[in-house]
């Protein structure tokens, strides 16, 4: 079974996000990117399937500042192949990213595409579902439990309240992964360094993926602070005393 995992890199939400001068996008200079955490789960689930049933895992990412590191890390974790897609604008919409991924994946011999269910910048939809549309194959997203039996996969799609729907699917298929069966593994830095020395990443230039998404951002902004929380100041002791007081008032 050949599994392809297109991953998204997204701005690190721990850092402060600034808006550009036009007020229509993030200020992307100095923005630091990291792998979308759901895509990290998609890599993990693909590696789990590889280990349990045998599979070849190819990880693909569009070029950003941290892409090399993300791809080398995926190889260090056990992926067989890593491909960097170049020529796609940093501010590309998810439709455009999906189209670029489609251009690369359509020519591959794949059975299953697994990607993160959603990402922090999905203004125009989610990568997996859009990609499935461009590839002309079905997609099940919000998937958390994948098992393989022969040519058939059984997947669980999550609804709210812990309810799930079980589906049987036949490749070729795209899966939007919500959570892997275990926490994504860690690749030791030494192993990643070694891979970097020994391996050259494959690169594919996609120059013409631009999709007209039919909408434009008029205004991007930090939501107005509402009343928000009353912040409790002072030492841990002071704050603990105040919280204890609030809790006791509420309990009495």
């Amino acid at each position: 079974m050949n599994i392809v995992v297109p991953v998204k890199l997204v701005p690190d939400l721990v850092e402060e996000l600034e808006i550009n001068d036009d007020g229509t996008d993030l200020e992307r200079d100095f923005l630091s990117y990291k792998i979308n955490e759901f895509c990290d789960h998609a890599i993990e689930e693909a590696l789990q399937i590889k280990e349990a049933h045998g599979a070849s895992v190819t990880v693909i990412a569009i070029e950003r500042d941290e892409t090399d590191k993300v791809l080398y890390t995926a190889l260090a974790k056990g992926a067989d192949r890593a491909v960097k897609v170049t020529g796609v604008d940093e501010a590309a919409t998810t439709h455009t990213a999906a189209k670029a991924m489609c251009t690369v994946i359509a020519g591959m011999d794949y059975d299953v595409v697994m990607t993160g269910v959603q990402a922090a910048d999905d203004r125009d939809g989610q990568l997996g579902i859009l990609l499935a549309g461009y590839l002309g194959v079905p997609c099940v997203s919000v998937v958390s439990d994948v098992s393989v039996s022969g040519d058939t996969l059984t997947v669980h799609k999550e609804y709210s309240g812990g309810m799930m729907a079980r589906y049987e699917v036949t490749p070729k298929i795209v899966l939007g992964v919500q959570a892997a069966r275990q926490t994504p593994r860690y690749a030791p830095v030494s192993r990643v360094r070694q891979i970097m020395k020994e391996t050259e990443l494959e690169e594919v230039l996609v120059g013409d993926a631009d999709v007209d998404v039919g909408s434009t951002v008029r205004r991007m902004y930090t939501p107005e602070k509402g009343e928000g929380a009353e912040m409790l100041e002072g030492s841990s002791e002071d704050v603990a005393a105040r919280i204890a007081q609030l809790l006791n008032e509420k309990r009495s």
Partner: peptide, 23 residues
């Protein structure tokens, strides 16, 4: 924009080439 709706909205966007604004 739920588990079911995400699947429907994004696949409709590609199938019918319609703009989608999500979340």
């Amino acid at each position: 924009n739920t588990s079911m709706g995400m699947d429907l909205a994004a696949s409709l966007s590609v199938a019918k080439d319609l703009p989608l604004i999500a979340y």
